[in-house]
Nucleic acid binder design. Structure first.
Lengths: 250, 250
DNA sequence: CGTTACGTTGATAGGAATCAATGAGGGTGG
DNA sequence: CCACCCTCATTGATTCCTATCAACGTAACG
């Protein structure tokens, strides 16, 4: 009788479908092998499982292979703030680099599998493979840009615009992964969307209903269909909170 | 007659007073010299001068030596969002790493001097000096943490709490620089504080007045005196927006 | 000494939070 | 298999914080 031992299956970065989206992007074959040698494929997480918690010592960064991971920080009072939802090909754990202690908590929203990369080994390989080092900088830069965008969304847009922006962000990332950009399932609850966007879940629900009434999206539980991509973009861009900055040139 | 040519004065990282706060933190003497060899001290910027603009090609990261720099991103519509105010010892320009194009604009709020570090050279030195490479990762990690904190502040606190948090953040950083933690000058206008914290300048003004009436701070134009640090901390922590997350254990 | 930019303060309005009730699935156990 | 529970989601009514509109005060500057 044959039993498949999944722990023995060699899944390398080289033959991973996320190859071009994930850390290996742009690496030569021999460089890739060096990276590969330190990557550990982990047991899948199930919905609700916690990968690391704020306060844990930092050892690994992780690449999401499948599923969806949410990252949260919290105030001293335990108020949680969701920093992001991470899809396949995206990197988490960077929050631990500064102080060697994680400042975020990572929780699976779906069954998710990840690749763990011990950071100490990573930095060693980075010194040998400059292009990987540069890619790491880029990944961290992307994280910073992502948060800049989130700040912009939260401070400058009304509820509807925030939701529209959020849906379009997901849409674009699904497209990049080869999934439909118009039909997808939200792995997160309304409450989690609200937390992420600085809204209550009631407001999220109301705004989504409103978008549906306007015919821009269809909602079926967690399933969203984007019916009018252009108008959705329009709402993102037009519904800015009025600026107090406008000054006439002297 | 003797004329001092400032461009000839050799200011090295080694004898810089920011030594322990800035990039050189934790470097050995010989490592420090390698870093030093690629650092360019720039002409001082004056209030309102722009160091780089969103869209500029990315060549340098910069360490702030004196003064104060504000970083902004903007939407396609030109709505601006201030990402942060940078004090001596802090690093800016990281927003260009991801795409080799700056996504932020950097403007001096005061007369400011900076050290420019060509990023290409930096990555080269990083591969030779692992501890510098790690420090770069830490600096970027700090940037991410900073934005996480800002998000928390904006989404979870009311106006007064945001202002209190902001003032305490400045206070702590001034202290670290060896300045007074209770008396300092705000380099930025009320409008800029508001932009940064997701408030209008009127609300900033009102909240600050309220803090003054409560005896927690004194305001004299741009000069702030913190009169009751503890209560200020208390306001940061207590005035959270009520959570919808609280769940009773099963 | 007017001009201008910045700051304060008041009155009002509006959008989202809050409070509240109801509905829809998903799982469990009788 | 269905009643029950529990979580999540929707929708309505009301409240509250902050944006907005507006007037006035203050400091810097040519």
């Amino acid at each position: 009788m044959y039993v498949i031992d999944f722990t023995k299956i060699k899944v390398s970065c080289e033959n991973c479908s996320l190859h071009e989206l994930c850390l290996p992007r742009g690496l030569e074959k021999n460089e890739l092998e060096k990276l590969d040698s330190i990557v550990n494929r982990t047991q899948p997480l199930h919905k609700g499982d916690v990968l690391f918690r704020s306060g844990d010592t930092f050892t690994n960064i992780y690449a999401v292979r499948t599923g969806c991971i949410k990252l949260t920080t919290s105030t001293e009072q335990g108020e949680e703030q969701i920093i992001g939802f991470y899809l396949p090909g995206e990197i988490i754990g960077l929050d631990g680099i500064e102080k060697d202690i994680h400042s975020c908590t990572a929780e699976a929203l779906d069954t998710s599998s990840l690749c763990a990369i011990p950071f100490d080994n990573m930095t060693t390989v980075c010194t040998q493979v400059p292009s990987l080092n540069h890619e790491m900088f880029r990944v961290m830069g992307r994280e910073i840009s992502h948060e800049n965008q989130l700040l912009l969304t939260i401070t400058k847009k009304h509820a509807e615009g925030r939701i529209a922006t959020f849906l379009l962000s997901l849409s674009g990332r699904f497209k990049q992964l080869g999934y439909s950009e118009t039909e997808f399932r939200l792995a997160m609850s309304r409450s989690e969307v609200g937390n992420y966007l600085g809204l209550t879940f009631e407001t999220v629900s109301r705004s989504m209903s409103k978008l549906q009434k306007q015919g821009l999206i269809s909602i079926n539980q967690k399933y969203i269909t984007i019916e009018d991509m252009d108008s959705l973009h329009h709402i993102c861009n037009e519904k800015d909170l009025p600026s107090k900055e406008s000054k006439t040139a002297p």
